[in-house]
Design a protein around this nucleic acid. Structure first.
Length: 860
RNA sequence: GCCGAAGUGGCGGAACCGGCAGACGCGGCGGACUUAAACUCCGCUGACUCGCAAGGGUCGUGUGGGUUCGAACCCCACCUUCGGCACCA
């Protein structure tokens, strides 16, 4: 006691409140950013082979003008990953760029008369500054802008290779069409009535000749995810999107009647050929080619009206299973190929022209949608499959029977009665059809070829020319790039100005030299993002799209981060492109991204997606002004699990800022004593100096062990929580005799190193002051090696075991760490509280849960 | 509607493999420091309940069932919210 009092008196001589410099992030952050850039800290040598490569990629962004907090939410933790890998010895390549083509630039042009290129460049300039303020270690020398001819030239070049390889083709496809503004994007069609966002006119579908990429060629390979570490939900969504189903094609024919001779082939795809005898009608998509040919004069008007209204609906509406079924009979019949039966032909909007063959055989007894349809229109429902144990003729079905149980049997199916439908009946019927040339096994996919044409100005021009004599003529490679004309008139209409620009349109045919016309469609911007990571490795290469040596060495990307909203489009297109480019011999692997992580999305405070029009955008700049980039970075990492996101709220950012202030205080003023804590400056009564140093070392090394793990698993929220715990633990020893000692100093060093990837500026600042204090030469904390755990510091001698009775905790006991089960059980059963609660009842069982817990089970 | 995901204190969230629910932070309450306030520091803080107190008890992870010695976690059904549905990127 006496000695403690002495220590206390001793401390009184010092000023109570420290006079250290305050933590002022706004003063230190820009200086370190400049210093790092000067040193080229983030400009790795791509040819360096002495260290393992780590290609870290975060989805590049659209230059909408302002960075919002959501951009930080993706990029700053990704930056922390890069810094962590670098400290672990990897050669990290972390590029950034801009997905600069797209609709908003054109919208700005129409609205405000500013040229899309000027608007885009201005936005990029602003966003570059904002990105720099985050303190992210992007390799700016690799920056890429997709709207530059230097980039889109190679989109064109790749398009031409796809064309040669048969991967690009032209076909008719419907677009949403406004009579005044031309083709509309989905977001430009508003309201349940589907009106044009600009002029309010009713939007209709119009069929245009457009370009497609044959992604379906790779459908099967795209179902194979072996060798890549992607989250299950993304793989499942892609798998369902591709939607492979095995079944059969069956050829029905039309029956002759008063107005047509019959004999037209109607091919259907079905996954249940075993139900063929139960097909009581057929349904064609309203867009089906034969609708016009087959419709009877009496039905012509009704059918035309139905087709027109079906064409006004979206696919989402058409596929909704909960709305009443609609459809009309076209006044013609088809013949069932197995029994020659006449069945009526209908059209209905639930059959889509893009899936299968655009026609189905309807088996109402065994398909839910067909059942609903048959009920609505009073069509025959004929049971052809019955559960093995069911009575025959047990009355009409109340619902479609869609089981695929092997105990089911086929009925009402002629020679196939009694077979199990799957797989026997399926096989038998298809084999019979095959023999007669009326059907065959077939695989169908839900995924459709990728429509890449856009009737827009601000995109990559598709490099083909239409010649009256030579037809479709590719632009020769040496004429690339086909540049977007700069002087264009937007005329206040939504129609692409390319369509009326004579200087662009008029061209001589490369084959015959006759006057010809350029393609005016541009490419979907998803093409830009389908190969950009290859280009980052040599963004200015003029004689080819990629530098093959570097591609060989640096790809696939080791870690890709970005939003889950890209699950099925961008992430699938990128995989398709990589496979196609591999088949063209351009790249060596068939998968783009080895490991994928999808962070969650930050919504506005109102829980809605952040957008300028909603006025719910959080500007990070003002937070950075107030708290500094490190606090904002750390707060975003601390908010919650990275894959979760959520509505934005700055509540709690002060707590993170306070934590950084505490780190600042611990590092620069270990001996200070704050008023308010009666124990300040004293060791806990149970510890002497040696014990205190052991406690400090244990806390620091245990934190290091778990934090290392959490960096590797991207569990940043708990990582920050553990750093806070360490800082709190150290604070308890501040001003005591061990503060500033060897164990303390080691702990501070570890704390700064662990903080460095996430809060790079303050870690660097404190590190430099620490070096200066020790009289050592400066070197950046970001080139330090990640520390390793001292196993001897964290060894535990005892552990606390909770004791349960029937699953409820009733007591706890501290035992030696290496205790054996029998000994533990003896100690537990002798505990007075346990003896009391058991009241003489013998335990039925005693469960030892992996040495972590004991559960005593008693009955009665 | 279909595909994918998420629901835990007043709030953000933790519990990584079926084993102590609520770490860490915010907010709130109390205290220290201050002439005062701010800052800073220390303590308490799921709900209900028994007890002067020390300390107990019951309930509790969207809802309803189930499996298990034991469920926030696994299974079934449902509700709500978010992402995607092919021209926003």
């Amino acid at each position: 006691m006496a000695s403690t009092d002495e220590t206390r008196t001793d401390r009184m001589d010092r000023p109570e409140r420290s006079r250290i410099e305050r933590y002022d992030p706004v003063a230190i952050e820009p200086a370190w950013q400049a210093r790092w850039a000067e040193l080229g800290l983030y400009e790795p040598d791509l040819t360096d082979t002495s260290r393992p490569k780590y290609y870290l990629l975060t989805m590049y962004g659209y230059p909408s003008g302002d960075l919002h907090i959501g951009h930080w939410y993706v990029k700053t933790p990704t930056d922390a990953i890069g810094r962590f890998r670098r400290m672990n010895g990897d050669n990290v390549f972390f590029p950034i760029g801009f997905d600069a083509f797209g609709l908003p630039a054109e919208g700005a042009a129409i609205k405000n008369g500013v040229h899309p290129a000027a608007w885009t460049i201005k936005n990029i300039d602003h966003m570059r500054d904002q990105l720099r303020s985050m303190g992210t270690g992007f390799q700016w020398s690799a920056e890429l802008i997709t709207s530059s001819p230097e980039y889109y030239r190679w989109n064109q070049w790749i398009f031409l290779r796809f064309l040669e390889a048969g991967l690009a083709y032209r076909a008719k496809a419907p677009v949403d069409w406004c009579p005044n503004d031309g083709t509309l994007a989905r977001e430009q069609v508003e309201g349940p009535e589907r009106r044009c966002w600009r002029c309010g006119a009713l939007v209709e579908k119009r069929d245009l000749e457009q370009w497609f990429f044959r992604i379906t060629k790779y459908a099967d390979e795209l179902l194979d995810f072996s060798g890549i570490d992607w989250p299950d939900p993304i793989r499942i969504q892609q798998t369902n999107w591709i939607g492979r189903s095995e079944g059969a094609e069956i050829d029905f024919t039309t029956a002759p009647d008063d107005h047509q001779p019959g004999g037209h082939q109607l091919r259907v795809f079905t996954t249940r050929p075993d139900t063929l005898f139960g097909a009581t009608f057929m349904v064609l998509a309203p867009e089906h080619q034969l609708v016009d040919v087959l419709t009877s004069p009496a039905q012509r008007e009704t059918v035309a009206a139905y087709v027109a209204q079906a064409r006004r609906q979206t696919e989402i509406e058409r596929l909704s299973t909960d709305r009443p079924k609609t459809g009309v009979a076209i006044g013609a019949d088809a013949l069932n190929p197995v029994n020659g039966e006449r069945i009526p032909i209908w059209i209905a909007d639930y059959v889509l022209s893009g899936y299968g063959t655009g026609a189905i055989m309807a088996v109402p007894a065994h398909d839910e949608r067909d059942f609903a349809f048959a009920q609505r229109f009073g069509l025959e429902i004929r049971e052809v499959i019955r559960p093995g144990d069911a009575e025959a003729g047990s009355g009409p079905l109340a619902a479609a029977f869609v089981s695929k149980a092997t105990t089911d049997v086929m009925v009402n199916s002629g020679p196939f009665d009694g077979l199990a439908p799957m797989p026997d009946g399926f096989q038998a019927i298809v084999k019979t059809l095959e023999r007669d040339g009326r059907g065959r096994f077939a695989v169908s996919y839900r995924i459709r070829d990728w429509l890449v044409s856009r009737q827009r100005y601000w995109g990559t021009p598709i490099p083909v020319i239409y010649c009256p004599t030579d037809g479709i003529v590719p632009v020769p490679d040496e004429d690339l790039p086909v540049r977007l004309p700069e002087e264009v008139d937007f005329k206040g209409s939504g129609e692409s100005p390319l369509k009326t620009d004579r200087s662009f349109l008029d061209v001589a045919c490369p084959k015959c030299g006759q006057p010809a016309r350029r393609e005016t469609d541009t490419m979907d911007t998803f093409i830009d993002s389908s190969w950009y990571w290859f280009r980052y490795l040599a963004p200015h290469k003029a004689d080819g799209p990629v530098e093959q040596d570097l591609v060989e060495k640096w790809t696939p990307v080791d870690q890709y981060t970005g939003g889950a909203e890209h699950a099925v489009m961008h992430l699938l297109y990128s995989r398709f492109f990589t496979k196609a480019l591999a088949d063209l011999g351009l790249v060596g692997q068939r998968e783009p991204f080895k490991r994928l992580f999808n962070q969650g999305q930050i919504l506005g405070a109102d829980g809605e997606r952040m957008s300028k029009s909603r006025g719910n955008v959080q500007d990070p700049d003002e937070l950075v002004q107030r708290y500094g980039a490190d606090t904002v970075r750390l707060f975003l990492m601390f908010m919650g699990p990275w894959d979760q996101g959520g509505a934005w709220s700055s509540t709690g950012i002060g707590g993170v800022h306070r934590f950084l202030n505490r780190v600042w205080t611990l590092t620069l003023d270990p001996h200070g004593i704050e008023g308010g804590d009666p124990e300040a400056g004293r060791l806990p009564s149970s510890e002497d100096a040696a014990a205190a140093e052991r406690t400090i070392r244990m806390a620091a090394h245990r934190t290091l062990r778990v934090v290392t793990d959490e960096y590797e698993g991207f569990r940043f929220n708990t990582m920050v929580a553990h750093l806070m715990e360490l800082a709190n633990a150290l604070f308890r020893y501040r001003g005591s005799e061990v503060a500033g000692g060897a164990a303390w100093d080691e702990a501070i060093g570890l704390l700064l190193l662990m903080l460095a990837p996430s809060a790079p500026h303050i870690a660097e600042e404190l590190w430099s002051r620490r070096l200066a204090g020790a009289g050592a030469a400066w070197s950046s904390i970001h080139v330090e090696t990640w520390p390793s755990v001292d196993a001897s510091a964290i060894a535990d001698e005892t552990r606390e075991i909770p004791i349960q009775i029937n699953g409820k905790v009733r007591d706890r006991v501290v035992v030696a760490a290496g205790i054996d089960q029998a000994e533990l059980e003896r100690i537990v059963l002798e505990r007075p509280r346990i003896v009391e609660l058991l009241a003489g009842r013998p335990p039925d069982r005693v469960i030892h849960a992996g040495g972590r817990l004991v559960n005593i089970v008693v009955r009665g």
